[in-house]
């Protein structure tokens, strides 16, 4: 397998700040690999993902996708956000076809195929505002896939959904990414999500944001959450995470004390 994404010792300091937000991030992700990035809120996961997408340039180092340096967004790598951000003045189908329209090659057949892929064919003409949160996120997924990207970047795209919708979407995205042989990097602060979707989990610590460890997920796909192997993987990840970043207290923990009791890393 070839390298898909490489970051060459990325460091980033936001304007007006003295200490770096990211420090010496050196990661290689293989083509077709599914990688999860976990860490507490504010450790710089979104910042790193924006750099992979070309939406933000690091102050030091660079990102390469298939050997090409990433300097701006491209239809070959696409990012999905926590909010679906569909455009309410367009139909569902027009939202899905937007990337193709921007590239000057409208393709109604591909749009229809993608809507079928995410199970929303009958909503093609609907206004996105009439869809549920999960359906909207499905449309956003179809929109991201429209231009046939090689890399799909996900920034906590399921965290605003209810538990049932969330787990079914996790399975669906995972299946689609594997079927289409996409390279996927997903940011999450949900350990279950990482175990459910990723081949490899990178663990990030804060201040400065850096990769402190990684763990291989030895599970076959599709994944069954109720199996002992799944639980064992989750326990292993929890243990590693606690060892590597567990001692730190963050603003997020102070804000959301009820989260501490749950199986979440933030």
């Amino acid at each position: 397998m070839t390298d898909s994404i490489r970051t060459d010792f990325i460091s980033h300091t936001f304007k007006g700040q003295r200490s770096p937000t990211l420090l010496d991030i050196d990661v290689t992700i293989r083509a077709g690999e599914q990688v999860a990035l976990i860490g507490r809120s504010g450790c710089g996961k979104s910042t790193l993902l924006h750099m992979l997408a070309g939406l933000l340039l690091p102050t030091e180092g660079c990102v390469r996708i298939h050997g090409r340096q990433v300097t701006r967004p491209s239809e070959k790598w696409n990012m999905m956000f926590q909010k679906p951000s569909l455009y309410p003045w367009m139909s569902v189908a027009d939202n899905v076809g937007l990337g193709l329209a921007f590239a000057g090659r409208k393709d109604p057949q591909r749009v229809a195929y993608l809507l079928e892929l995410v199970g929303l064919s009958e909503k093609a003409a609907a206004n996105p505002q009439s869809l549920s949160g999960g359906q909207q996120q499905r449309v956003a997924l179809a929109r991201s896939l429209a231009t046939s990207p090689e890399v799909l970047l996900l920034d906590e795209p399921f965290s605003a959904l209810d538990a049932f919708t969330r787990s079914s979407l996790q399975d669906e995205v995972s299946r689609i990414a594997r079927e289409q042989n996409l390279t996927m990097v997903m940011v999450t602060h949900d350990i279950d999500e990482a175990v459910a979707m990723a081949d490899r989990v990178l663990i990030m610590a804060a201040n400065p944001g850096r990769i402190v460890g990684e763990i291989q997920v030895e599970l076959t796909s599709p994944r069954q959450r109720a199996t002992p192997e799944f639980s064992r993987q989750r326990e292993a990840l929890m243990t590693s995470f606690e060892q590597l970043v567990g001692g730190e207290t963050t603003a997020a923990e102070e804000e959301e004390p009820e989260q501490a009791g749950k199986r979440k890393a933030a």
Partner: peptide, 27 residues
Amino acid sequence: IDPLWFKVARNLGADGLQMLRRIIFPA
């Protein structure tokens, strides 16, 4: 306008003119 609308459009490869025509004016 929701800043994320700009980000998503940029991410989908919109150039300046397309941003105006497809995002800003309808919005």
